[in-house]
């Protein structure tokens, strides 16, 4: 029973969440209308030439190739990872990762990075390349969601408009309510100030780019939920988000590229370290924190925005 239900959900025949996550009740008219609309769109899609081509490709073994490639790449990945795990040093054995590196981080961390917070020194100085990759993962995820869910005049057809009108009625919009607005008017500035504090304090204490960016993203989400998308779009539009994220990632890459280049070639690094404990300390850590925070904040807000009003 359970298995067949799971399988039918897997192949998209039934919706398990039906009756649980539906937001409107009683009249099934709107739902019927949605179903009819979906069926009609599907029929239209099947009638067009491109769909036929895709279906033809499927029958010609494209799907089989897809499966084979997926299995092969999975096996290769598993093999590489198992190989790496097998070559790890044994537990308790002498190896540079557990002795020399940790000792160096603890003993020389403050002196070499200029940051009191040793974790910030590690993730944004010794291992900044890793953090750069993480920021790019966030950016890539945002791009994917944008590609899938973006909704504007270019890709919105007339036939879809009714679809969204029907769907829009089913959600209760809280942005017009006095409680939410007044609470947000008091809270949002406080949260923003706290986020900026966490962001700028990353090299001296707990905090840093990811946590500060998350707090600021939450503030943006509350603002958007309380005052509606129209007002939120005036302050942080999609365009602004894209530009800020792009600029932050470019700055991060350029700055870290400079540091890597000078370090690898034994050149002098001209970035001042400052005195540990001050706000302007830690060399590149503060600017990089700000860049990471911007990326995180706009990624969170972008996710919320796109999932709330996307397709």
């Amino acid at each position: 029973m359970n298995k067949s239900r799971f399988l039918s959900w897997l192949y998209g025949e039934t919706d398990v969440m039906e009756d649980i996550l539906e937001l409107d009740e009683t009249s099934d008219e709107s739902r019927e209308q949605l179903k009819r609309e979906k069926r009609r769109l599907r029929r239209e899609l099947l009638r067009s030439g491109r769909a036929k081509k895709v279906i033809g490709a499927e029958t010609k073994g494209f799907y089989a190739l897809y499966h084979v490639v997926a299995v092969v790449s999975c096996i290769m990945l598993i093999g590489v990872l198992l190989f790496a795990v097998a070559n790890l040093p044994r537990y308790g054995e002498e190896n540079p990762e557990t002795t020399e590196m940790v000792a160096r981080y603890v003993e020389k961390g403050v002196e070499e990075t200029g940051a009191d917070n040793i974790v910030a020194g590690m993730i944004l100085d010794y291992r900044a390349f890793d953090t750069l990759g993480e920021s790019h993962v966030l950016f890539t995820a945002l791009i994917c969601v944008t590609i899938l869910l973006r909704l504007d005049r270019k890709n919105m057809r007339k036939t879809y408009e009714d679809y969204y009108a029907i769907r829009g009625e089913r959600f209760h919009d809280i942005s017009r309510e006095a409680i939410m607005r007044n609470v947000a008017a008091v809270l949002v500035p406080c949260i923003f100030v706290f986020g900026i504090y966490v962001l700028l304090n990353g090299q001296n204490g707990p905090g840093g780019g990811f946590s500060g960016g998350a707090v600021m993203g939450a503030a943006m989400i509350i603002f958007s939920a309380a005052f509606g998308f129209d007002k939120a779009d005036r302050v942080f539009s999609k365009r602004l988000g894209a530009w800020v994220t792009f600029a932050a990632l470019s700055f991060y890459s350029a700055a870290k590229g400079y540091v890597f280049f000078t370090g690898a070639n034994h050149l002098e690094n001209h970035i001042p370290k400052g005195t540990p404990g001050a706000i302007l300390s830690g060399g590149l850590i503060l600017p990089l924190d700000i860049a990471v925070g911007m990326v995180v904040a706009f990624t969170m807000y972008g996710f919320y925005n796109l999932f709330m009003r996307g397709k």
Partner: peptide, 16 residues
């Protein structure tokens, strides 16, 4: 209390 209020409101609007 605000979040409690809105959870309750969602329940009120969606429970059949």
């Amino acid at each position: 209390p605000v979040s409690t209020h809105y959870v309750a409101q969602v329940e009120y609007f969606t429970n059949r």
